[in-house]
Simulated scan of single mutants.
Amino acid sequence: MKKRKPDVVVISDVHLGTFGAHAHELSYYLSSIKPKILVLNGDIIDIWQFRKSYFPKSHLKVIQKILNLASKGTKVYYITGNHDEFLRKFSDTSIGNFKVLDKLVLELDHKKAWIFHGDVFDASVQHSKWVAKLGGIGYDYLILLNRFINWCLKKMGKEPYSFSKKIKAGVKKAVKHISDFETTATDLAIEKNYDYVICGHIHEPKIIEKENKNGSTTYLNSGDWVENLTALEYQNKRWKLYRYEDHTELETEEEDLFEMESYIEQQLIASIISSKTS
């Protein structure tokens, strides 16, 4: 496979260790690029919902590909998010080309990019963390159900449907009066004279010019690898939004479903044994 060589790639919200992570697709994408800089902008490994019994080989392969890029010269910055906040105690740790940070400023062609995950601006996480964690568990099982239904729809030749996008849109509207994520991020970026502000967290891929009475900046969001399968790429002095093309093989979908079904069977067996011994 001929590799593309963007200057910077930003991915976020992969949620490895959950049913929703599209690890096969991300592995393919990582195999297709050789960036100078790779920014992992939070929630790459979902420590909130981590289970020892569910971390498939496909998820491990993503980590191996990231480390392989670092070993071959790519500078890898792991920016911590809320689902992997445990790693914040290791902030500013460097191992070769791999560095853990809470935020990052890059200078790109005489312009400054301010990069952070974005959970600090989300009132639903900051003020009700236990509710957010509980919601994350429900979201994970909703993704599992949604992927099975979409597999069935694909068999019937019909378009996929996203339950999570519909539900999450309603939740975001409910907290809009408390915290307008994009406005807060861009207002601060303008105040600090950053040309770009780059976030993840809300699973909404976007590139948009934002302005207020004090100036303007470019707001970018890398989206996620659960629903949208997107990344940001910087090359030739411009940003673009990469969207994974619909070329997933059927056997890959079936492999994912098999991994999920095996995990559920293990949990059911464990529950039955536990109930009989108690």
Score class of each variant (00 low, 15 high):
residue 190 I to Y: 05
residue 189 A to V: 03
residue 161 Y to F: 11
residue 62 V to K: 09
residue 133 K to V: 09
residue 270 A to H: 14
residue 22 H to S: 06
residue 104 L to T: 10
residue 175 V to Y: 08
residue 54 Y to F: 15
residue 116 F to L: 14
residue 106 L to H: 10
residue 62 V to Y: 00
residue 162 S to V: 09
residue 201 H to R: 12
residue 133 K to C: 02
residue 123 A to Q: 04
residue 108 L to E: 06
residue 44 I to R: 05
residue 124 S to D: 01
residue 179 S to T: 15
residue 72 K to Y: 04
residue 247 H to M: 05
residue 3 K to Q: 14
residue 135 G to H: 04
residue 226 V to L: 06
residue 46 D to V: 09
residue 111 K to D: 06
residue 25 E to K: 01
residue 79 I to E: 08
residue 127 H to P: 00
residue 161 Y to R: 07
residue 196 Y to R: 07
residue 195 D to M: 11
residue 96 G to C: 07
residue 87 L to W: 09
residue 237 K to H: 05
residue 100 V to F: 05
residue 142 L to I: 14
residue 14 V to L: 11
residue 38 L to F: 12
residue 20 G to C: 08
residue 259 E to G: 06
residue 61 K to V: 08
residue 59 H to L: 05
residue 19 F to T: 02
residue 237 K to W: 09
residue 99 K to Q: 10
residue 199 C to T: 15
residue 26 L to N: 01
residue 186 T to E: 03
residue 272 I to H: 12
residue 148 F to W: 11
residue 65 K to V: 04
residue 168 K to I: 14
residue 98 F to D: 06
residue 164 S to F: 07
residue 207 I to E: 01
residue 110 H to I: 08
residue 192 K to C: 00
residue 155 K to V: 14
residue 195 D to Q: 11
residue 62 V to H: 02
residue 95 I to H: 11
residue 236 N to P: 00
residue 40 L to I: 14
residue 38 L to A: 13
residue 174 A to Y: 12
residue 176 K to S: 12
residue 91 S to F: 09
residue 94 S to M: 07
residue 187 D to S: 15
residue 150 N to A: 02
residue 256 D to A: 00
residue 198 I to L: 02
residue 121 F to I: 11
residue 35 P to H: 04
residue 217 T to I: 14
residue 81 G to M: 00
residue 45 I to F: 06
residue 27 S to P: 07
residue 258 F to P: 00
residue 221 N to L: 09
residue 91 S to M: 11
residue 43 D to G: 10
residue 259 E to S: 11
residue 210 K to P: 05
residue 161 Y to C: 03
residue 260 M to C: 07
residue 101 L to R: 13
residue 49 Q to E: 14
residue 148 F to V: 11
residue 175 V to H: 00
residue 207 I to Q: 07
residue 96 G to Y: 13
residue 172 K to I: 14
residue 105 V to P: 02
residue 98 F to R: 04
residue 83 H to V: 11
residue 224 D to N: 10
residue 119 D to E: 14
residue 141 Y to M: 10
residue 125 V to D: 01
residue 88 R to C: 03
residue 208 I to R: 15
residue 21 A to C: 01
residue 94 S to T: 04
residue 157 G to W: 10
residue 214 N to T: 14
residue 5 K to S: 02
residue 14 V to R: 14
residue 64 Q to W: 06
residue 53 S to H: 14
residue 31 S to Y: 03
residue 27 S to I: 12
residue 259 E to R: 13
residue 87 L to Q: 13
residue 107 E to K: 12
residue 237 K to Y: 08
residue 183 T to N: 14
residue 244 Y to D: 05
residue 25 E to Y: 09
residue 118 G to S: 06
residue 212 N to M: 05
residue 45 I to L: 10
residue 250 L to E: 11
residue 55 F to M: 13
residue 46 D to I: 10
residue 39 V to A: 07
residue 218 T to K: 08
residue 190 I to L: 03
residue 63 I to L: 15
residue 1 M to N: 01
residue 274 S to F: 09
residue 141 Y to G: 02
residue 20 G to L: 12
residue 31 S to K: 09
residue 142 L to C: 06
residue 219 Y to C: 08
residue 120 V to Y: 05
residue 23 A to P: 00
residue 43 D to E: 10
residue 75 K to D: 04
